[in-house]
């Protein structure tokens, strides 16, 4: 399998949408630094219309985000809890809301899944990749997703098959594709490579 990366999403970086009525900003870990960088380019009143959902992931950006004086700042312990809050906000959101997502690829993938579900085109969401290159990988056999994959091949945390990570990305699943590496000759597994640190 060759490494054509055409299905891999492009993350062009955050930039302020001066016209949006509400800025719904999601950031995880180092993604907060992307929000702070955007703040330097944003007009003064920008954050008075901003709702920030932040997963610290071990970082200490909360005071700096609070200093932007957003309309709301919600600090949430995990991606799952952030997505739960996001669904609540989207349920009553209207046109004129601009969504921003910054952080690791699995985090951005989760945000895009939620926004897609309420009819927001993926190209409307401003994204920036920050932090680790770890991947979420879906096992094509059992359909289970394994988070925080940094090496290929790896063992599926659901069904136990040894999977190599194909450079093929599904926005709908927010995941790369994992395919059994030793399907033809069971046990014939190439050496593990750390690729996505």
């Amino acid at each position: 399998m060759t490494a054509a990366m055409i299905s891999r999403p492009v993350y062009p970086g955050l930039s302020p949408d001066q016209y949006a009525k509400t800025h719904l900003i999601l950031c995880e870990g180092e993604g907060a630094a992307a929000v702070l960088d955007m703040a330097a380019k944003a007009p003064k009143e920008f954050f008075s219309r901003a709702l920030i959902l932040f997963c610290p992931a071990g970082t200490g950006y909360e005071p700096k985000l609070a200093a932007l004086s957003p309309k709301s700042l919600w600090v949430l312990p995990t991606i799952a809890t952030a997505m739960f809050r996001l669904r609540g906000v989207l349920a009553t959101a209207t046109m004129g809301t601009r969504v921003y997502a910054a952080g690791t690829e699995p985090f951005i993938g989760s945000v895009l899944q939620e926004t897609l579900a309420v009819g927001i085109d993926h190209k409307s969401v401003f994204t920036e990749h920050r932090g680790s290159a770890k991947r979420r990988v879906q096992c094509v056999h059992c359909k289970g997703c394994t988070d925080d994959v940094t090496a290929s091949p790896f063992t599926c945390t659901h069904c136990g098959l040894t999977l190599f990570v194909r450079d093929h990305y599904s926005r709908r699943l927010g995941a790369f594709q994992g395919v059994c590496v030793d399907a033809e000759v069971p046990g014939e597994v190439p050496p593990v490579e750390e690729l996505y640190r």
């Binding site: 299905s7 599904s170 594709q177």
Partner: peptide, 22 residues
Amino acid sequence: WSLDFDIGMSFKEWHAPVPLAH
């Protein structure tokens, strides 16, 4: 190829794994 994986993709995205042609 997997429909479950590729559903929702654009033309070039679902052809991504094909070598040489791009």
